[in-house]
Design a protein around this nucleic acid. Structure first.
Lengths: 214, 214
DNA sequence: CCACTAGTGCGACAACTGATGCATTAGGAT
DNA sequence: ATCCTAATGCATCAGTTGTCGCACTAGTGG
């Protein structure tokens, strides 16, 4: 895995690459930028290989050969998006950390042009892109686990509280409301979901061993 | 609205229908059944008008004329799916009601063939289908509000608790885990989400006026 | 500077999608 | 029973999508 992630800037994603020349990297950059631009303008439906190639200034054949289809393009974009140094907020309070996290999600899902929703929606069209999307989310949630660890260290959460279910419970309403239910942007949504989850967590809702309710 | 929803059995969905003859209704039934079957077999991608028409035993042109495109087909299927007498469980306990509701969602999202996930995913491809999906969910959540009303009447929830945010918080983790994150079916998921939400609700997390926490 | 070859551009081609005009069938009314 | 017409079947056609063979450009190493 060491030499695999050597340089995120010049590493071509698919297949063997015996020649990481300057042109290859340049072409990739142009194509991936074109994908994001097309996604923002025409949405999930309008993402055609033809338009991407034209905007990128390359030939259709090149795109088909290197990425095979639209799913390959999206998977590459998603993998590139995950290669950053993002980290969750650190405010000293679980509810505030979750609120900040949710506000980022809220902004991403309601930004114009709607690139993120288009990316998520388009991922349904390709198993390959869906896999990449899943990897990205899994990585993001893993980075967020430190938020729960800090809260545990402060004694704000009962011992045995599991990070993943808590994080999913806190963030899921954002995706559900804005992505699936098509609700209008709501500035209070982020805090409400964060507060509800923090309350439930403090009450022991996310401990592996339930507090015996029968 | 009265004559609009006269008979869900023989009512053709799109446009004017000066002749609700037996053949028209029969064709619609065959086509809608074919859509569900194709959706289950080939998923969101494999849903072509060609295959639907062939399976339904009608000509492609007929499908194109009456439903225009795949989005129209899905919208009609979704509208037909909402015309039932479904209601939420009534167990006498908020947590158990929510758990039962979540178990239905869990089963729907993990059933084989995966018709419901395919239907939701495919709705991203068409604004018309997305609108129909949104209507269906809105109707379902409206029917579920009685669960919160009963809990309020029992005194299990603080006054001012809002039904919609509570229901969304309870059900969103199911959709998020099973649909977006692609997690494996988990029998405990339904109850865990229901319990967390019930705990948060009892603590006043879903009242319009927050309980003053600063 | 020169040879080698991965990567790209280019054109043509097959397959598929969706649209249109006309003939035929079948439901509804006199 | 018979006519009227909405709904369907049928053949055809234009536009688009994805593939293939060939020639050329541009990194890479000598």
């Amino acid at each position: 895995m060491g030499s695999e992630t050597a340089d995120p800037e010049t590493a071509p994603p698919p297949g063997p690459r015996p020649r990481p020349g300057g042109r290859t990297a340049r072409t990739r950059r142009q194509v991936l930028d074109a994908v994001l631009a097309e996604l923002g303008e025409h949405g999930y439906d309008g993402l055609t290989v033809e338009a991407v190639a034209t905007r990128a200034g390359v030939h259709r054949t090149t795109v088909y050969r290197r990425w095979r289809d639209v799913g390959g393009l999206l998977a590459d974009v998603l993998d590139a998006a995950g290669a950053d140094d993002w980290g969750p907020p650190d405010t000293g309070s679980l509810e505030d950390d979750l609120t900040g996290l949710n506000e980022e999600i809220h902004d991403a899902l309601t930004a114009r042009p709607p690139v993120v929703p288009a990316l998520i929606a388009a991922s349904f069209r390709s198993p390959q892109a869906a896999e990449a999307q899943r990897r990205l989310w899994d990585d993001r949630y893993a980075r967020c686990e430190v938020v729960i660890e800090r809260a545990l260290a402060r004694g704000d959460l009962p011992a045995g509280t599991e990070a993943r279910p808590l994080l999913v419970a806190a963030t899921a309403p954002l995706y559900h409301q804005l992505l699936l239910l098509g609700a209008a942007p709501d500035p209070q949504l982020a805090r409400r979901a964060a507060r509800a989850t923090a309350l439930a967590a403090a009450a022991g809702a996310f401990t592996g061993q339930p507090a015996a309710d029968t």
